[in-house]
Design a protein around this nucleic acid. Structure first.
Length: 782
DNA sequence: TCAGACCCGTCGT
DNA sequence: CGGGTCTGA
């Protein structure tokens, strides 16, 4: 669903970019997109239960393509179902089953092509399928993470942390999550993507105000989010009759969602569902605070820190319950089924992509990552940690028969029939060389690109403590099967492993090229740091004049322009970054401001504040003086508080260690945020008490049932809470319901963490396995 | 003019 | 899931 109409409303700021423009960057990828498309290559097999991994091949081709262009992908998988979306899942599941049955029927009648059509409609991506891809990613040392809940939030988090510089997806929701750069419509033939930059939001109006009246000028993230939610989002259907445009207009007029809802209700033309505002708040919290996995601390965190005041159990459950740390990590690694929280079942143990890559390494045919390519020799020494890393998943001794594998694994080589594409690439490479020597030491031949180009290398990210170095290594062949648990422990106990179990030693291995890596990572020069204001107007793009060398038909800005990876520090260094470009107004960032990386914050408090102030004075007229003639003043009513909040958030960011300072900042933040929160939500119209209570009860099983299985451990299975929620159908319409109000008979033990021990014993106690299996089957990536 | 229902393609041969 | 199209208000 996403936000209907949002992408088309933002058409004017969409730009087509060639992959080469992102060379040197790390880009987060919504794995669902590729998996789901890849599933079409083998829909029949999947629907009829034939083992296949074609979808992995499909996804890996994309991965290799990105790497071929010097882009380091960071694959993000969906995790457990968020309560907010359960109803959607159930409905989809029902449809799929329908189609599968239909397909089977047709197949039995020999109508195979028709059957296939049905199969296409019932295909579904399961965590087990995702795991097959994970195996391949591990084998080729591609970064990945399984989100505890929604991939969207996880993607947003990665970008906000500066771990990635853009997000490749198909979902407009990412913008609501506050992402800065969203890439859509990945075209692997043309090798282009459509890019939407948040920085361009302000110019939406200038280009297309007449055609589609939405204008984001001067809006804060909060208002943008409010517009999206009001117009209907995954978490909350809109008030019937309100779409994007109306939401936008209403918000312009009344400024806050509260006021909008009040007036809509008063007007009486549209019927506002009961408790809508409250549900709005929950949806807003989902976008703001959804739980994500922090790879650097290896635990679940809020996408944006929460305000303890006004934070209730319902909200807590709604945005996804916490998970015990070990469990969270295993889930993030893919060793745990995010739905059942049980150890991942390898549905295709015969598919073992790791072995073939290892063999390649032995042969010196190494990945495009220069680290590997250069140090063929270094591999043996890392056997130990590699083995540990792979431990959790039983390693099958490599069999020669590996299905899809040719010895060549890497893009440009893997598929031999890419003549035109390769020509194009060389073209681009040549051009890049001509123009931006630092962006890519372009080499004329593919092979040398692979092995020499430092930009194709891993990004070394010391700040987050995470490295992306290759885990592939020789020696896997000798690996014995070991129990997952043991292996996990050994990983934990191993020498300072960083996120994803990548051994630190890898870091040293590549230190020789670190400088280059850093250069590739940090923006090469100050002038190149992402200049949001300068880009805010399409007509105002620097480097636009040398666009001739983009062979693609569409305007592609110079690689130089996008060469840098997002570095918060840059913001503070060059005030010009936040200077408003000409007339363009930039969205004010309130809460979801990308927080500076710990290591990169030298004096961010002051600087960022300056940025914000600057922003405020030059871009957004908070004082209420009219920026535009026709439109009413639209200062965000929350702005002062928000700014405050930001500041405090930042201050909290700097002290990365729990010190007294942290406490103080926390208190400050709490106050500030609480004030803002109260302003925002405290005067909600009182809704019926019973609603509240049913919400509470709902909370008892939202997260817990979905996530915390110990709740049911000693329960009679038959009386266990139904995983399938009874849908509280929106009375207004037969639209997709809100599952908030769903009642439940289960008592909660609280939102608390899950106890791994409990889980494990739970796992062994398979008495509930029917339920588990049901959930397993019911699950789908949404 | 807008919301919303509906259908389509998604892969790859 | 987005996109396009048609329809009804």
């Amino acid at each position: 669903m996403g936000i209907q109409g949002l992408l088309s409303a933002l058409k004017s700021i969409q730009t087509t970019k060639h992959l080469s423009e992102f060379s040197g960057q790390t880009i987060a990828v919504d794995a669902y997109v590729w998996l789901h498309k890849g599933v079409f290559t083998c829909a029949t097999e999947l629907a009829t239960g034939k083992p296949t991994t074609k979808y992995v091949t499909y996804a890996m081709e994309k991965v290799r393509l990105l790497r071929y262009h010097g882009i380091e992908p960071y694959i993000v998988f969906d995790g457990g179902p968020l309560p907010a979306k359960k109803h959607t899942e159930v409905e989809r599941k029902r449809r799929r089953d329908e189609q599968r049955a239909k397909g089977n029927l047709l197949a039995s009648q020999g109508k195979h092509s028709q059957a296939r059509d049905c199969y296409l409609k019932c295909v579904d991506v399961t965590p087990q399928m995702a795991f097959q891809l994970i195996k391949a990613l591990r084998a080729e040392s591609v970064q990945y993470v399984v989100a505890p809940y929604e991939a969207d939030a996880q993607l947003a988090f990665l970008e906000r942390q500066g771990i990635v510089s853009a997000i490749l997806t198909e979902d407009s929701d990412l913008l609501v999550f506050g992402c800065k750069t969203v890439l859509l419509k990945f075209d692997s033939v043309a090798r282009t993507v459509i890019s939407i930059s948040r920085a361009d939001f302000a110019s939406v109006t200038s280009n297309s105000s007449d055609s589609n009246g939405i204008s984001l000028v001067g809006w804060s993230d909060t208002q943008f989010r409010a517009m999206a939610i009001l117009s209907g989002c995954d978490y909350l259907p809109s008030i019937p009759g309100i779409g994007l445009k109306t939401a936008c207009a209403l918000l312009r007029k009344w400024k806050t969602p509260e006021a909008v809802v009040r007036h809509v209700a008063l007007e009486g033309k549209k019927s506002v569902p009961k408790g809508y505002l409250n549900q709005f708040k929950l949806a807003d919290n989902c976008f703001l605070h959804q739980r994500v996995y922090d790879p650097s601390t290896e635990r679940l965190v809020y996408l944006t820190d929460v305000d303890p005041c006004g934070w209730d159990d319902l909200t807590e459950a709604y945005i996804g319950g916490d998970l015990e740390r070990t469990l969270a990590k295993r889930l993030a690694l893919g060793d745990i089924d995010p739905v059942t929280l049980e150890p991942m079942v390898d549905i295709n143990p015969g598919y073992n992509p790791s072995s073939r890559v290892l063999r390649n390494l032995d042969n010196g045919v190494s990945p495009s990552r220069k680290s590997q390519g250069k140090s063929k020799s270094g591999s043996k020494s890392r056997n130990e940690s590699i083995l540990n890393f792979f431990g959790p998943n039983p390693i099958i001794p490599p069999r020669p028969k590996s299905p899809t594998s040719k010895p060549k694994v890497y893009a440009g080589r893997a598929s031999g029939k890419r003549t035109l594409a390769e020509v194009m690439d060389q073209d681009v490479a040549a051009k890049k060389k001509r123009r931006t020597p630092l962006s890519a030491p372009a080499s004329p031949t593919t092979s040398s690109r692979f092995f020499v180009n430092p930009l194709v290398s891993d990004i070394r990210r010391t700040s987050s403590g995470m490295t992306i170095q290759s885990r592939t290594d020789a020696g896997l062949e000798t690996e014995n099967l070991a129990s997952s648990e043991d292996e996990v422990e050994s990983v934990h106990d191993g020498d300072s492993l960083v996120a994803h179990g990548y051994p630190v030693t890898e870091l040293e291995d590549h230190s020789s090229s670190n400088v280059e890596q850093e250069d590739g990572y940090i923006s090469p020069s100050a002038s190149m740091s992402r200049v949001e204001d300068e880009f805010s107007s399409p007509s105002n793009r620097p480097f636009a004049d040398d666009a001739d060398d983009n062979f693609g038909a569409d305007p592609v800005s110079s690689p130089v322009a996008v060469a840098s990876v997002f570095r918060p520090r840059r913001l503070s260094r060059s005030p010009s970054l936040v200077r408003a470009g000409s007339l363009d107004k930039i969205l004010v960032h309130d809460s979801p401001v990308p927080l500076p990386n710990k290591l990169s914050t030298t004096k961010p408090v002051v600087d960022l504040k300056e940025c914000l102030d600057h922003d405020a004075s030059s871009d957004i007229d908070y004082s209420g003086s009219d920026n535009e003639d026709s439109t009413p003043p639209y200062p965000s009513p929350l702005t002062p508080v928000q700014t405050d909040t930001n500041r405090v958030d930042q201050s909290e960011e700097i002290e990365d260690d729990p010190a007294e300072e942290g406490l103080r900042a926390n208190a400050l933040r709490t106050q500030a945020v609480a004030a803002g929160w109260r302003n925002r939500w405290a005067h909600e119209p009182s809704y019926p008490k019973n609603v509240q209570s049913s919400l509470k009860r709902r909370e008892t099983n939202i997260t817990p049932t979905g996530r915390h299985r110990q709740l049911r451990i000693n329960e009679d299975i038959t009386s266990a809470p139904r995983v399938t929620p009874r849908l509280a159908v929106n009375p207004i319409r037969g639209r997709k319901s809100l599952s908030f109000l769903e009642e439940t008979s289960v008592k909660s033990t609280g939102k608390g963490n899950i106890n791994v021990k409990t889980l494990d014993s739970d796992v062994e106690n398979v008495s509930h396995s029917t339920e588990v299996r049901n959930r397993l089957e019911r699950f789908c990536y949404s």
